[in-house]
Write a protein that binds this DNA or RNA. Structure first.
Lengths: 221, 221
DNA sequence: AAGTTCGATTTTGCATTCAAATTGAGCTCA
DNA sequence: TGAGCTCAATTTGAATGCAAAATCGAACTT
């Protein structure tokens, strides 16, 4: 198995919450499961620690990182900045075909909203945000975005929404699509910021921070 | 020696250009120099590869990463976004004492400008940009900023400037300080963006990308 | 003389091994 | 009873060993 693949498998295990935030990462067990020895496993853990997904405690092993309220706020704040930038750049560079694809994804997502299928809604939602970042045509930006969103994925895409908030989110997404179609970079960046600010408020209000004893049990499907 | 320390030492070696972009990283030699074995060295190299400073070639070892023109453009673009965000946040959160400290650093830098001491000027310049990011009070942002700026440090702080461009940069820095003192977040973010855009143009014009010349690219028949 | 092929050498990537640190069970003693 | 101590067992972090891959160079072919 390739190094990057090891990193990705462990990342997936952490993002799925299979090893919940704060839990010790059982080296031996993971080694057996991935059929590798401790050396490449530990290399992967150091990489994930640098990414912020794993916390290394000297001589005490590694744990799945826990996010405090402050961490969550900081991450959302940066995510806002990155998406706003991506939106602006995307408007300069996106092709008509890409816009059409996003419009289709949007229609799809709205359909899931009508059916009140939250899981599928979130899946489509995420695809749209990622498509915008991709359309920005900046791999460095895409990389940082991936790393930041990975850390807040569970909070962002698992938090349940009130009917009201959900309706607002859909409205915002219509504005997002509209701005993209008009290639209004400044407008898009503002909408994206507001959209994420609302999401952040939602998440923090839901008390999704991962520091207190009981853990949220919802999983990404 | 602690893991992070190993990473930092190697990072410093790369940033100093002691191992120039594109050059092979001699494992054995570095091991002897740092007085560690290959295991912790290789862990550090994987981390630096994830950061983008090192390029890993399967079964062919690691090289100091080279930046293409496109990489440089992308990195500056993201840096603009991060600094703009930092500027906005800093204006909301910065204390009077922090502003005073930056004002002092600014005066210092201007003095170096008057003396045409480019090295000291750049040192002060960097301190100011970093102080603004710190004042944003967002460690996640600070971390990403550090990682992005590390990769363009040599280009950003080594490129020689024409008298004209230097004068413009100083003018821009006056505007930066002014916006900070007025706590004009939006204004500051615009100035920072323009400032970095100019720097990027300068760097790209100077042909600072690290791809041409020394190293032939691999060709596969 | 240029290019190709084959084999020795070096280097890489991973498994294993080993010392040091931590944990935890059992014991002592107030 | 329970707080503190002791020492074995586990776990971590790093060095070493080993197989596979790549590189280098000499011999060979054309």
């Amino acid at each position: 198995m390739l190094h990057d693949e090891v990193v990705n498998r462990i990342r997936a295990i952490l993002l799925d919450g299979e090893i919940p935030p704060g839990a010790r990462i059982p080296e031996r067990e993971l080694c057996e499961r991935l059929e590798i020895s401790r050396t490449p496993l530990r290399e992967a853990l150091k990489v994930l620690a640098a990414e912020g997904l794993v916390q290394l405690l000297p001589h005490r092993g590694s744990r799945a990182a826990k996010l405090t309220d402050k961490d969550m706020r900081d991450l959302f704040e940066v995510c806002q900045g990155l998406e706003a930038l991506a939106g602006e750049l995307a408007c300069e560079r996106i092709s008509d075909a890409e816009i059409d694809a996003i419009a289709a994804a949007h229609a799809d997502m709205v359909q899931h909203y009508r059916e009140r299928d939250l899981i599928q809604y979130y899946r489509g939602n995420r695809a749209i945000h990622e498509a915008i970042v991709t359309a920005a045509g900046n791999p460095v930006l895409a990389g940082l975005y991936a790393s930041v969103t990975a850390r807040i994925r569970r909070a962002r895409y698992v938090t349940p929404m009130t009917a009201q908030r959900w309706a607002l989110a859909v409205k915002e997404h219509e504005a997002i699509l509209n701005a993209l179609q008009r290639r209004d970079g400044v407008g898009l960046s503002h909408i994206l910021r507001a959209h994420l600010r609302h999401k952040r408020e939602e998440v923090l209000q839901a008390g999704f921070a991962e520091t207190e004893g009981s853990e949220p049990t919802l999983r990404i499907a």
